[in-house]
């Protein structure tokens, strides 16, 4: 009952958020310099040509009028047509979404595994040199942004030690039997592990670059909470019962210490998705982010709007999932 109410409330606030995002994006990209029509026509086009094309895309009307027309379309599921690609925006954006989702989730999994391992090891071996080493590694990982990690990885693994692919999503010469754009998931479902391998070889470096800063944040915060939890009475009590240090950390401390980290991971995951825009460009990965940069360069207004709205939907979705997980893990919230 409370869950249904919470969900309804969240859906309403989400709707308001999305409306706000739509308004801001719509107006901002029309106010900044740069005209899509001018980008499309060859130099020396007549004023008449410009006017015709402007009218064709509805850009001759006032901005509020354009917004109403576009908004009415959106409510019917029509996000307009891309100016440069001449295809419906919704289909384009949804076509690219799986690539970005797979990359982000892979990066998240890597970050959780790396950060979790660092935190657990650091807690188990606290106040030793190993913990010191983990702290130094965390500090280094945090002080370099993801796109610089991307460049470093390209240099190291693409040039010096070429074991991973540094460009694209999949080797272009491969024949892909896929019906959806979730290549990685589908390759697993179809048991085509040769393709899984090729996809992972392509995705590993961009995902790793995205994961490094998040892994460091997870490692640092989780280790901090774990160490604080290790002083609590119920942990001490478990020790007197004969449990080993490792089991005490895993069973008693972790479920409680993980809660603050979980909230942070939710917030940071949205940053990670934001980071895909640059990282996808860097690794020529055919996802939403790469498409977003092209759309901005070409002043493809409907496409930019569609992509930004989709990113906003993803962000609010991630936050909702985090809140629900938090409630599931914390019994005090569940009954409250």
């Amino acid at each position: 009952m409370t869950l249904v109410r919470t969900l309804l409330l969240r859906l309403m606030t989400t709707a308001v958020t999305l409306f706000g995002v739509a308004v801001i994006v719509f107006f901002v990209i029309r106010v900044v310099p740069g005209n899509p029509v001018a980008m499309m026509l060859p130099p020396g086009a007549t004023a008449e040509d410009v006017a015709r094309l402007t009218a064709l895309y509805g850009l001759d009307k006032s901005i509020p009028q354009q917004f109403v027309i576009w908004g009415a379309g959106v409510l019917h599921g029509d996000f307009g047509t891309s100016i440069t690609l001449r295809q419906p925006v919704l289909a384009l954006v949804l076509g690219r979404l799986p690539a970005t989702l797979e990359l982000s989730v892979l990066a998240l999994v890597m970050a959780v595994l790396m950060g979790g391992a660092a935190a657990l090891t650091g807690t188990r071996l606290r106040e030793t040199r190993v913990e010191g080493g983990i702290d130094v590694a965390n500090g280094m990982a945090l002080s370099v942004p993801d796109f610089l990690w991307g460049l470093v990885l390209i240099l190291v693994f693409g040039v010096l030690l070429p074991v991973f692919q540094i460009s694209g999503r999949v080797t272009p010469s491969l024949h892909l039997p896929f019906v959806t754009n979730f290549y990685l998931v589908e390759s697993l479902v179809r048991l085509r592990f040769d393709l899984t391998r090729d996809l992972l070889a392509h995705m590993f470096l961009p995902a790793f670059a995205l994961a490094i800063p998040l892994a460091a944040i997870i490692g640092q915060l989780l280790k901090q909470s774990l160490k604080e939890t290790m002083h609590l009475d119920y942990v001490t009590l478990a020790r007197t019962q004969g449990y080993s240090e490792a089991r005490v950390i895993w069973r008693e401390a972790l479920p409680n210490a993980i809660l603050p980290t979980l909230t942070l991971v939710g917030v940071q995951f949205t940053f990670l998705i934001g980071g895909t825009v640059i990282i996808e460009r860097l690794f020529s990965y055919e996802g939403l982010g790469n498409m977003a940069i092209d759309a901005v360069i070409n002043r493809d207004l409907p496409l930019i709007q569609g992509i930004v709205i989709l990113f906003a939907v993803i962000f609010t979705g991630v936050n909702l999932v985090v809140d629900l997980t938090y409630a599931a893990l914390n019994p005090r919230l569940r009954h409250g």
């Binding site: 609590l232 119920y234 009590l237 479920p255 409680n256 893990l329 914390n330």
Partner: peptide, 9 residues
């Protein structure tokens, strides 16, 4: 302290 000696989760 019984308030802190049981695991809250």
């Amino acid at each position: 302290d019984p308030l802190t000696a049981l695991n809250p989760s």
